[in-house]
Design a protein around this nucleic acid. Sequence first.
DNA 1: TTGAAAGCGCTAACAT
DNA 2: ATGTTAGCGCTTTCAA
Lengths: 325, 325
Amino acid sequence: MVTIKDVAKACGVSIATVNRAISDKPDVSQKTREKVLKKIDELGYIPQFMARSLVSGKTHIIGLIVFDVMNPFFGELTAVINRLLRKRGYRLQTCIIDNSLEDEKEAINHLASLNVDGILFIPLHKSAEFASWIKKLPTKVISLLNELDNEIDFLGVGEKEAMETAVGWIHQKGYERLLYLSPPLHWRGNKNLDTIERRLEGVMKASEHLFPGSSLEVRTDEGYLERSREWLRESSQKSAILCSNDIYALDILKASREWGLKIPQDFGLMGFDNIDTLRYLETDITSVYYPVEKVAKAAVECLFSQHEKPIHQRFPTKIRHGESL
Amino acid sequence: MVTIKDVAKACGVSIATVNRAISDKPDVSQKTREKVLKKIDELGYIPQFMARSLVSGKTHIIGLIVFDVMNPFFGELTAVINRLLRKRGYRLQTCIIDNSLEDEKEAINHLASLNVDGILFIPLHKSAEFASWIKKLPTKVISLLNELDNEIDFLGVGEKEAMETAVGWIHQKGYERLLYLSPPLHWRGNKNLDTIERRLEGVMKASEHLFPGSSLEVRTDEGYLERSREWLRESSQKSAILCSNDIYALDILKASREWGLKIPQDFGLMGFDNIDTLRYLETDITSVYYPVEKVAKAAVECLFSQHEKPIHQRFPTKIRHGESL
DNA sequence: TTGAAAGCGCTAACAT
DNA sequence: ATGTTAGCGCTTTCAA
């Protein structure tokens, strides 16, 4: 490995001079600088980030932890954050955790140990111990989409209101019964993630009057496709399926073809996130638009702002009206 | 920041002892070890990765450079690579370059400077200078999907053969004319990327006999949607559009609805990559299956293998037959 | 079983 | 304009 020492030796100068030349310091003669830069190029010298950052204490890196890179929703979020950080002269280092709780902790730990200037992450689970562990970290941690704790900065959307609006809209369209598809509750014995909890709350609250009693069903387990089929068969009333994310909606759409059912003629369908993929479908699925750009922008601003009190910001969503209801 | 020194002081031992305790070295008394670990927990000490790696010279990090995180194809590739690396005790650090040539170089440079144990990347452009610059790096660099240079390790697929097979299949299905949609050629004055070049070659070669003369048209610019519409109008012969990637195919599919044309009744359509998104479409698009898993696996193996001669491996693709042809 | 000290590659303060 | 040196936080000999 070529070090600054090698360059210095090759140039017949001290390492301090080499450092001056590469750091654009003024106090080097033009001649020396050129000589040094030429040698650096010849030798293929690359300054070690590790050594540099050990001295400076800064990395200009922001860590991002993402648990799902297949869902284009997260791809979009990542892309936006990356762009905003680059503009500020920072780099984004993304860590993928494969829906694993152990990896989640490990990834945060790794980034903190890497001494990154901040960590953005989308929590995969919620627990009091996890939150207090995070609060003890020397690194600034911001949670996205899922609120973790009062004292941990958070950027997301008004989940409950989003669902209330969604249910209201479905009711307004004349639907008489509603099936809500949620991710599993209390996953691995943890508290429900913020989004799961609040979306469910929103659905329940709005349904109290709009879809009372058995006109609302909530389904949270893996067999939701079969159950959806059954549920649709059980009544001839006008029925709608509300999905807590677009992937579920896509699965239902796909299944509906096999079932020989038309949307919206045979039942209504609504998703959440409004992922880009929806554009390509023949059936224009109504979905809750998630303001990814706004959340990303606020997150990056939060990262660089000084604030005493923790930031908890929820942006409003809005319904993107399609043809599936 | 809490350092090993602080821990040592708090425990009344030397930093060497603290190090022994955290490094699972045998030569510490059980009592001391426990005391140290307890203090570490209390103080919230996190060993600095930078300092550690500066000493050891190892990072156990593999860098990955991706230029597009919105396309689920790359998401899938990333996820697979991540999983394989974790199994070997390595971490993946992903850098996103926003389709920018400057960022491409910068990202590689950053990872090399970070002293990662290897770099995987999907080249965004091809040039002799770029290749020789890469070869001078002290870090092992492996290119994926796009071959860069004879001496730089490469993993991908038989692009030319894939396209020959695709064209052959289209011909076999009775199509009489073919429109091939390729990404722009000689982007920003660079040599064509390997995939672009070879796919085009494959199309040309197979078409020589199967779609001679004006029965083949190649379109490479941005206005391909309008041109496709026109091209379809120009003849009543059985026509097929072959896309060099699924995103183009999705765009054509979407446009075809606006055009009031049915697939495959009015024209045939074929894509490349067989991205997961296709599953959700009503029209089951025929596409070339890209063996992502195999490529990822080979790439990771290449990373850890010692080999004198550069590795250049192309996996076979196969057609996933849908209903669009 | 423990401590002292060298040194990883670099930056920055201080000398010359 | 250039060189010398301390030290960033850690690991790893070498002594004790």
